[in-house]
Nucleic acid binder design. Structure first.
Lengths: 238, 238
DNA sequence: CCCCCTCTGTACGGTAGCTGACAGAAGCAG
DNA sequence: CTGCTTCTGTCAGCTACCGTACAGAGGGGG
């Protein structure tokens, strides 16, 4: 990390953007802007959590290691949230069966975990913000439980693309079918098939590791209701 | 509710049992013992949370309303935890798409939500307890995400029975196949089939709305690894 | 320019679980 | 005992998805 301190917090993270000037000024000196690269691991199973990340344009996934799989997605975090939430309830060691990986490269703000934890008991805006995000985060995972059990791969693919699209703020971003298959916990050829359907319908375009969203509305119609639910939760709570 | 105040906290809830005598004495006057009946709703979608429950022998489920389903299970809470956790992060209105239902009738301790919330900022044992349980709770849901997507109905049935068995402290408890099917988000006949297999193997016995666990070890072998993971998490954190 | 590697498309047999429908059995109420 | 309700068992056909395998196609590096 460089030691360049920030005088003001760059815009882009929806949580931090809603801080008052006073709290922003208080926090800014402890934040630092970094670039997160594709597939970079932010937290690894059982390791110490020493930083908390607020994504600006990057998107990361919380993944669960199950048996032989290379990780099923539990939740995604982008500009609406933060990575390392458990610090807020005093847990500084990462879950031994989970890890966090960058899915879409981009920028993020970083703060030292202990510094962050020390700010929370003051019960200011930041604390309330984190509490609201906690609620949104737990709701997101809960929805994911239902979605994974009930909905088709096509619906879930669409949902995933929409959620990511909302967070990167660009119609095109890197994504391989292999990667998406891992997130959803399904076979890669299954993704190829449904991606073909969605592409045929004109909703998306896949091109060797990059996806372009060409028709959001269409994609929404192909998705299960979970997308709408999650979107609404984040709009309400963040 | 009766207004009978408790001088000491009855044993049975693993969280409360680990409090020191001093903190126990502090909390006891605010707790009250109640009986929770089968299928009773503790929290309903979008309603105010005015009590927090610490199950003794009862077990409750957090359920997600998805479209037309009558609720898919997100998490179960028994004597290892508490119901109404979001109060600890300042959220007093229940999620508009979730509710909590009693699955296995039994006793619980109740405390007024505001009284409970007021105790937390003191950062004593109780707070730390709640924080550890928060971590366990989030981990449980995360595991459920992976489990729902990857494992067979038979494995998930076994996992569910084992988790419940751990919490009720009795080999027999009420359970219909219809109910279990709803929890897992599958059809009832599918449950009948796998229940038949498990019964044939001598692990359980179903008798018109009641189940008896006859061979835990066997049941563990039929379950997916998720049971072991969750068990380990609760033992470590609670 | 060519090679190679990664990513994507496709195919075939197999199976878990679904839809829908119905029949039997256990227990309760009269 | 009789009847009704609730719970459990079973079946036949169907679909989504899996396991596995292989063939093409885009694109960067030499």
């Amino acid at each position: 990390m460089s030691s360049a301190e920030l005088a003001a917090i760059p815009e882009g993270n929806r949580l931090l953007d809603s801080l008052s000037p006073a709290e922003e000024a208080d926090l800014a000196p402890h934040l630092e802007q970094v670039r997160l690269e594709l597939k970079e691991l932010l937290f690894e199973p059982g390791k110490r959590i020493d930083s908390v990340y607020f994504p600006l344009t990057a998107v990361a996934s919380l993944l669960n290691l199950v048996e032989d799989t290379s990780g099923v997605e539990i939740a995604t975090v982008g500009n609406e949230g933060l990575v390392g939430l458990s610090v807020s309830w005093g847990i500084n060691t990462f879950n031994p069966r989970e890890f966090v990986q960058v899915q879409v490269p981009g920028d993020a703000l970083v703060i030292d975990a202990e510094t962050f934890a020390a700010k929370l008991p003051e019960a200011g805006e930041l604390t309330w913000l984190v509490h609201r995000y906690t609620q949104a985060f737990v709701t997101q995972i809960g929805q994911q439980v239902a979605c994974n059990g009930l909905h088709t791969i096509e619906e879930r693919c669409a949902r995933w693309m929409l959620l990511t699209h909302d967070r990167v703020g660009s119609d095109e971003f890197p994504l391989t079918q292999e990667f998406l298959a891992q997130m959803l916990g399904v076979r890669r050829p299954s993704v190829t098939v449904v991606a073909g359907v969605l592409q045929q319908a004109g909703f998306i375009r896949f091109r060797r590791g990059r996806i372009t969203i060409t028709d959001r509305r269409g994609l929404e119609s192909a998705s299960c209701g979970c997308y709408g639910v999650l979107r609404e939760v984040f709009d309400r709570l963040v």
